[in-house]
Write a protein that binds this DNA or RNA. Structure first.
Lengths: 330, 330
DNA sequence: TTGTATGCGTTATCAG
DNA sequence: CTGATAACGCATACAA
C-alpha cells in the first residue's frame, strides 16, 4: 500500500501551511502565483489527491452520482442501458464525479434505497432512467429538493424538471419518410398499446410522416405488447388485411424481428425498420433507428452538474435526434 | 432535504451517551440488552444511518468496490457485462457494499485510474474482468496488496489470486456431447486462434468430448478471429472440405450466427451451438452455452468480502459450470 | 457497562 | 496573501 500523502505532507514539502495548500486547490486566486506554483509542484511530485471522505465531511458534497442498474429486462432491449452507463461514467469522470450503482426490484424499494444512499453516502444527485407517467420517484426527489435528471421525458409535465430524451417521433418519422421516398405507398406500423408516452410518441412520428406525404395512415397500424412473438403475430395480421402494407416501421427491434420472421417465412419482400439499433438488429441486418446513448448520457451529466453547481438554476431539457441506420438483411 | 440525524441525535433520543450508540452498532455484546433495545428503537424511529464518510475517516474502509465498465466492444458479446454488473450490485448491497464504476481506454490508463480511485475514495477492493495472459493490472494490485478478485482465470498462474470463472471446456464438451448423442458422427468446431486462454479452453472441451466418444477431432475445426462475417467464412470452409461436419459447435455466438447464415443460405440442415447465450441467440433461436453470470458475480463479491474481512486469507478459486440452452431455430 | 477525550483529512472563519 | 484554529461524524483507547 502506498504511503498516505495528505495535505500536511504537501504543506511540509512546499514549506507552507496546510491552509495555503487548500487554497491553492479550492481558491487559487487567493495565492501568490509564485507560492501557488511551488505548491502545485509539490502536489505533482508527491502524487497528492484530496481525500474525498474528508472533503465530504466538510463540504457535505460527495461528488458521487447514483444510477440504478436494472434487472436486465427482456435482454434484447436491455442492452441500451449498458451503453448509456458507459457514457455516463466517462462523462462524469471528466467532470470530477463518480458513478455509484444501486438496484431495486420495484419503485417502492427504489425510493427506500434513496434514503439509504442519501444518508449514508450523501450522494450529490441521481440519474433516473425509464420514467413513466406520474412517476413517484421524481415526486419524492423533487419534494426533498434532491438534484436529479431523468433520461426520458415526464410526459405529463414537460417542464417539471431537467431531463434528456431522444425524439422518438423524429426517428419513426425519418424511417417512414425513407420508405415513402423509396416508393412505398402503404407503410404500416407495429407499435405498443396506447397509453405509454414512448410508444405513443413513436406512433405519432409514423403517422405524421404519412400525413406529410399526403397518405392515409388509417388501417395500417396495429397495437401489441412488446416481444418477438407479438411482432410476428402483428405482422401476420397486417398481411392478412384486404390491402396489406408494402413496408413496415416498428416501435422496437423485438417487434421488428418478429415481423421479419413472419415476412421471411411468407416469402414477402416487405422492408422492415426497427427501433433501438440493438446488437440483434446489427447481427441480422435489420435497419433500425439508433439512439445516441453516449450523447444522452453526457447531457445527463451536464444537466446534473449544472444543477449541482447552482442549486437554484431552472431545470433544462434536451431532446436529441436519433439516427436511421440502414442495413441489408442477410 | 431531510434533517441530518447523527449518532448524537440517537444518543439524546435514547438517553445514553454517543459511545453507547456506537457500541450498539459495532459491538452489541458490550451493551446491556435493555439499553441495546432502547437504542435500536431510537435508530429505527429516527431513521438513523451511519455516515460512511465519517466512518471511513476513522476506519480507513469505504465499503466501496470498484468495477470497470468497458467501452461496449462488438455489441453482441458486450451484453455479458451488463448482467454481471447487475448481479454484482445486488450481491454487494446485501453484504453492505456499494459498486463504483470507472472506465479506462486501455490497460495503462486503467492502472493510473487505480491510483486516483484508491487515494481519493479509499476503495476497499476491485473486481477485474477480462484478464489476459500476464495481466499487468493484477500484478500492480498484488504488489500493493490491494484486495481484488478477477472474473476470469489467470491462465499462467492458476493459484496466484482469488478468481471466479466459468468452465468453458465443460460448456463446449456438453454441447458436443449433446450433438454426439443426437447421432452426429462429425461434429466440427469454429474457434479463435490458439493463444487466448478462453479460446483454447473452449476448443479443448470440444476435443475432449469427441475423444471421449471415440471420435477423431482432426480436420474438423478451424481457427478464426471473432465476428459474424468470420463465422460465415469459417463455416463455408468447413462445408467445402471433402468430408464436411454434420454439426457445429462455436466459441461464440458471433461465430455461430455467421455459421448459421452460411448454412441457411446453403440450405444445409447442420445444427449449430454457440457460446454466451446472448440476446441475439435467444432472438434467432440459436442454441447456446449460457454462463451463470449472476452466480459468478455473487461469488466474486463473496471472495472479495472474504479477503476484506481477513486481510491475510489464502486466495480462493471458483469454477462454475455453464448450462446448455437448447433452442429450435425459426 | 457507560462516559470522556482524541484524531482521521479537509475546508471555512478569522486574525495577522 | 498567509497561518492558526475549529468543526464535520464517527470509532477507539482509556478511565470511571
Amino acid at each position: 500500500m502506498a504511503e498516505k500523502v495528505t495535505i500536511a505532507t504537501v504543506a511540509r514539502h512546499a514549506q507552507v501551511s496546510r491552509q495555503t495548500v487548500s487554497n491553492v486547490i479550492n481558491a487559487p486566486q487567493l495565492v501568490r502565483p509564485e507560492t501557488r506554483q511551488r505548491v502545485q509542484d509539490a502536489i505533482v511530485a508527491l502524487g497528492y489527491r484530496a481525500n474525498q471522505a474528508a472533503r465530504q465531511m466538510r463540504t457535505g458534497r460527495s461528488r458521487l452520482i447514483a444510477v440504478r442498474i436494472e434487472p436486465t429486462r427482456d435482454g434484447i432491449n436491455g442492452t441500451v442501458l449498458d451503453r448509456f452507463l458507459h457514457g455516463l461514467t466517462e462523462t462524469a469522470e471528466a467532470s470530477g464525479y463518480r458513478v455509484m450503482l444501486y438496484t431495486a426490484p420495484d419503485v417502492d424499494r427504489e425510493i427506500a434505497a434513496y434514503g439509504d444512499l442519501l444518508s449514508a453516502y450523501e450522494l450529490d444527485g441521481f440519474v433516473i432512467t425509464g420514467t413513466d407517467h406520474g412517476d413517484p420517484r421524481t415526486a419524492w426527489l423533487a419534494e426533498r429538493e434532491i438534484p436529479f435528471v431523468t433520461f426520458g421525458r415526464p410526459w405529463d409535465h414537460p417542464h417539471a424538471h431537467s431531463w434528456v430524451d431522444v425524439d422518438g417521433a423524429a426517428g419513426t418519422a425519418e424511417a417512414t419518410a425513407h420508405l415513402v421516398t423509396a416508393g412505398h405507398h402503404r407503410t404500416g406500423f407495429i407499435g405498443w398499446p396506447a397509453g405509454s408516452g414512448v410508444g405513443d410518441d413513436r406512433r405519432a412520428g409514423w403517422r405524421r410522416a404519412l400525413l406529410d406525404a399526403g397518405m392515409d395512415p388509417d388501417g395500417l397500424d396495429v397495437q401489441t405488447e412488446d416481444g418477438i412473438a407479438e411482432g410476428a403475430r402483428a405482422a401476420r395480421e397486417l398481411l392478412g388485411r384486404p390491402v396489406p402494407p408494402s413496408a413496415l416501421v416498428c416501435a422496437s427491434d423485438s417487434l421488428a424481428l418478429g415481423a421479419l420472421q413472419t415476412l421471411r417465412s411468407a416469402g414477402t419482400a416487405v422492408p422492415v425498420i426497427g427501433f433501438d439499433d440493438t446488437p440483434v438488429a446489427a447481427a441480422v441486418g435489420l435497419s433500425s433507428v439508433s439512439q445516441p446513448l453516449g450523447d444522452a448520457a453526457a447531457r445527463c451529466v451536464d444537466l446534473l452538474t449544472d444543477l449541482l453547481d447552482g442549486p437554484h438554476r431552472d431545470p433544462r431539457q434536451v431532446l436529441l435526434r436519433p439516427a436511421l441506420v440502414l442495413r441489408h438483411p442477410a
